[in-house]
Amino acid sequence: MLLCFAVVGCAVSPTGDKLYITNISDNKVLTLARDGSVLATFTDRALHDPCDVHVTPAGQVLVCYKVSSHTIIQVDDKGRKKLATIATKKDGMVSPRSVCYNRHTASILVGLHDNNSILVFKVQ
């Protein structure tokens, strides 16, 4: 049986005017307006299976890619382009499933699917 998921993760911008959606079936991150219209679609041929998205209080958009990519990236707040690679498999990233920023500790927390662990990355 083939399972397809239209929406896996979603997050709202700090101002509430944008909604970011991960679509794992189509390898896309969609940016929607408050009325549901599509403002932007982000894809990257090198990245597969976007499973979660998180928006920091400062508006930074973090996306985790699991399975073959094992990567956390930052995209611009418009949802159009990649700004940075935050962590990869070289950093211990194996099947990330969730991502979150903790402003109190200035850390990015990543939940790993395959070994039930949480990785913590300090942010400068």
Rank of each mutant, 00 (worst) to 15 (best):
L3I: 13
F5G: 05
F5A: 07
V7S: 09
C10M: 14
A11D: 01
A11G: 02
V12L: 14
T15H: 14
D17E: 06
K18I: 01
L19P: 10
L19T: 07
L19V: 15
Y20E: 00
I21Y: 02
I21R: 04
I21N: 06
I21S: 03
T22L: 00
I24S: 08
I24N: 05
S25C: 14
N27G: 10
K28C: 09
V29M: 03
D35G: 01
G36C: 10
S37R: 11
V38A: 07
L39G: 05
A40Q: 04
A40M: 01
T41H: 12
T41K: 14
F42L: 03
T43F: 07
D44M: 06
A46Y: 12
A46K: 15
L47C: 03
L47G: 02
H48G: 07
H48A: 13
D49G: 02
P50L: 06
P50S: 02
C51G: 07
H54G: 00
V55S: 11
V55Y: 02
V55H: 08
T56K: 12
P57S: 08
Q60D: 15
Q60W: 07
Q60R: 15
V61I: 11
C64V: 13
C64L: 08
V67M: 13
V67L: 15
V67Y: 12
H70R: 11
T71C: 13
T71P: 01
T71V: 08
I72V: 15
I73N: 02
V75I: 15
D77K: 14
K78M: 00
K78V: 04
G79V: 09
G79D: 02
K81M: 08
K82T: 05
K82M: 12
A84Q: 15
T88D: 06
K90W: 11
M93G: 02
M93P: 04
S95E: 07
P96I: 05
S98F: 08
V99Y: 05
V99K: 05
Y101C: 07
R103Q: 06
H104Q: 10
H104L: 14
H104F: 12
A106Y: 08
A106F: 13
V110F: 03
D114F: 06
N116P: 01
N116S: 13
N116G: 03
I118R: 06
L119H: 05
V120E: 15
V120M: 12
V120Q: 13
F121T: 06
K122M: 13
Q124K: 14
